[in-house]
Amino acid sequence: MTTSKRRSFREPSLLTKILLQLAAIGILITVLFPIIWVFSVSLSPLNLIRPDGLNLIPKDATLEAYLQVIERPTGNPVSFIELAFNSMKIAGGTALASVALGVLAAYPLSRLAFRGRTFIMLVILGVLMLPAVATLAPLFVTLNGIRLELPILGTFNLRNSQLGVGIAIVSGSLPFAIWNLKGYLDTIPRELEEAAAVDGASQVRIFRSIVLPLALPAIAVTGFLGFISGWTEFYYSWMFLTQPRDFTLAMALSAMTGTYASAIPWPLVSAFSIMLTLPPAIVYLLSQRFITGGLAVGSVKG
């Protein structure tokens, strides 16, 4: 009796297998349905009011929504490329700044003993608890009071500029980067660094030639996460920016669904959504192996 029971434990019946497969496919349909729907709507003609049903490829399928998005997605005279370039500038700049400053700060917080360390960690932890919207009012008011005169960019209000938006984003992304990188450094074995210290290497040298290379996967992940959140950043850019030439992708998407309120141009919105989503998703899928692999485990034995 025990043997037959054990066999049933290891080798499920055909009926069980079919039911399991059906359940998995059913779940897959619910996961993919919204994605396929957006794809289908994006291929519909621009003047569509009501889709004629649940078709994968709609009747009169056309790429005109994509062409319109590339040329001029909103009422403002800005193309998709210009919007994407603005988002890229903000996302890239803030990701770079917070990772560069973050890894420098994470190293002593993870490895060195110094006065004030606990206090700094508590402050960072406290700041991390705040959602981004929580510092909106003071940042808006403060940056609004600053007029900058720069050689190339001319005179401008810091609040109404991409630089201002970048500063506001860094206010939240820097503490996150420090915390994330510190957490990763804590998991790297210290043997290599201790050996280097015994050999008389300076802290700067140890940081540059041991810690930095080992932390590369974490730097990449933190930078990528920072880039993603900057790429679709909404709170600050929507609040700060008023000139159409500064607008970002998320602002355009929000404007498309907001201003038309009752008659939203869904094919346009869907095409825009897909073009907004694809770049970071492709980067993620391509770099997945690099991100999860290449950890510090092997380096101690070798």
Partner: peptide, 10 residues
């Protein structure tokens, strides 16, 4: 993998 603003709009 989909940005929150796109999820909400979808």
């Amino acid at each position: 993998l989909i940005p929150p603003i796109v999820v909400a709009t979808t």
